[in-house]
């Protein structure tokens, strides 16, 4: 009897060469699996999903999956995604970014995507390090931790991605981990059906860089630590564990929806006839 393939195989690109670029013990594949299942359960058509990424290990996610996929420049995923979403509001635009991609080089774009509350879902895979370039500290590397560029310990504070997103105006903000797959999947499913800007931060593991540099043990132990060192929001008691769960879920006016009211206002004010294309011709003519 033929073994039934898991659901995710229906979404993987058959003509793409596998395996993935990710190291053994990496958590990114777990996030990709959850993302696929959440998209599937949300009933979205593959044709309508645009998966956008920046640079880094997480940035390699889109190439493997059968959506419209866009692997952009470092930190800029949200800018390309904003263009896609505004240009075609029927599309469901999801960005996948790492912590350095989303919050360091892309920090400004992240803030402004939140502020506009534009209809994009941002999955931020936070593994506390720049993995692809060999383990340099990122904005989420805990203070004191060792990295390839902080051999004596990271002296900066780390940023709380969820607090940042909430304070800047995102509609939906949640955090989970690759240990809590069901919880993550539910959060992503909710995020992709939210009308405004939605953020799901997923705490993940970088065994081969962050883990080794900071003696975090085996990948299994690192997975386990995500259970031990996090706590549901309702049970958080200030003992230093990181809160998991939904930080905000609010219905605010979203950007491209609101743009339609500007269109209506402009038409009312203008009263002019739409500017016609000057004699559209077939492609291949003389410019």
């Amino acid at each position: 009897m033929a073994r039934k393939l898991p659901l995710i195989h229906r979404y993987l690109r058959k003509d793409k060469k596998f395996p993935t670029v990710w190291c053994p013990g990496c958590g990114i594949g777990v996030v990709l699996g959850s993302l696929i299942r959440a998209i599937h359960n949300s009933g979205l058509s593959k044709d309508d999903v645009v998966l956008v990424s920046g640079i880094g290990c997480t940035g390699r996610m889109p190439v493997y999956v059968d959506f419209n996929t866009l692997h952009t420049t470092h930190g800029r995923a949200l800018t390309f995604a904003s263009g896609v979403r505004l240009a075609n509001p029927k599309l469901k635009v999801i960005t996948v970014m790492g912590d350095g991609d989303a919050i360091a080089i892309g920090g400004n774009h992240f803030i402004h995507a939140c502020r506009r509350n534009i209809e994009i879902t941002a999955i931020v895979v936070n593994n506390f390090i720049y993995g692809m370039t060999g383990g340099q500290f990122s904005p989420t590397t805990p203070t004191g931790d060792i990295s390839a560029t902080s051999p004596f310990g990271n002296i900066a504070q780390s940023v709380d991605i969820c607090e940042l997103a909430r304070d800047c105006g995102a509609s939906y903000v949640a955090r989970s981990t690759i240990y809590h797959v069901n919880e993550m999947e539910k959060q992503i499913a909710r995020a992709v059906t939210t009308s405004g800007f939605s953020v799901v931060e997923v705490l993940s593991t970088c065994y081969s860089r962050y883990g080794k540099l900071n003696q975090k043990g085996s990948p299994r132990e690192m997975f386990r630590a995500l259970k031990d060192q996090t706590v549901p929001i309702a049970k958080a008691d200030g003992d230093g564990r990181i809160s998991r769960g939904v930080f905000i879920d609010r219905a605010e006016a979203a950007y491209s929806d609101t743009y339609q009211t500007i269109v209506a206002k402009a038409r009312e004010h203008d009263g002019g006839e739409p500017l016609p294309l000057l004699n559209p011709t077939r492609p291949g003519g003389t410019p």
Partner: peptide, 26 residues
């Protein structure tokens, strides 16, 4: 807007360039 087309002021020129590429892909 009156023509039903899209105008957006982005947060910087890096973002502006990214946005027009994204839009062109649609």
């Amino acid at each position: 807007p009156a023509l039903g087309r899209v105008f957006i002021q982005m947060e910087d020129e890096i973002a502006s360039m990214g946005a027009i590429i994204g839009a062109s892909l649609t």
